[in-house]
Amino acid sequence: MQVGIDLFVLRKSWLHEIDPRVKLFFVAVSIIILLVFKNIFFMLTALVLLHLLHWSAKIPRDRILFVWKTLMPVAILICVLWVVFYPAGDPLIQIWMVKITLVSLAQGAVLGLRIMTMAFVVFAWLYSTDQPSIVRSLVKLKMPFEWGLILALALRYIPTFQGMYAVISEAQQARALNISEGKGFGRVRTLMPIFVAMVISALRASDQLARALEARAFGAHGVERTYLRDISFRPLDWVFTFAIFATALLLLYLNFRYGFGRQPISLF
């Protein structure tokens, strides 16, 4: 499966239909909530709900597995490091110098789960929104069109540059460059012939790209840009926005007022 460029999954689902700005709002609010809450059961529930969200948006299983495969190593690493370096409370077991406590286990798990839940929030947005819509929504949120274009171009040319790197690396290996040679700085030196050729090629490509943009009347003065595909807020989008807002407010109120979800293990 080629992920990296076309993260977007073309499906017909309610999540695909929502205005991208609502999804962006959901991502922002969810990240705040996930940073505020520190309870393992809250995180587990969130994780289950997010899987339901992906499932209801008809995101295929391999895309969900992709998120797990990509981020689980980081999540586990963070969890283990926390457990090893920040013991709190009575040790459950002690192996040599390392104390493992129930509290630090739960705290570590929360940190790990936070990575996963945040990832699923962001990927729900990316999987269900095509790039023109993402750019369009950012521009509607008052980001300058040029920035949006640069973002879109960056995403568009990731696979091109990946391919370029692969070819250049092969071309230099064919000239007997041993790319696995050296460590640290030595390795950087080994890879220089690839990096330099890459930079030269990229400069050439960006020069051509700039010309192509100009040939398509990019930067025309005194013209208000039109859009073939536009996005518009429908009544349902207002409903979702309100629901997200209300839920977030409720959760944050419970958290600040009653300490809901502040402890690693107990809910209050």
């Binding site: 023109p132 995403l155 990019f218 025309a220």
Partner: peptide, 25 residues
């Protein structure tokens, strides 16, 4: 071809110049 096609769909590619010129939808 690689550096003069910079959009994510054929439709967006062809529309790009027209959008820049402010042609109605």
């Amino acid at each position: 071809p690689e550096t003069q096609l910079f959009n994510m769909s054929v439709e967006a590619e062809i529309a790009f110049g027209l959008e820049c010129l402010g042609v109605p939808r």
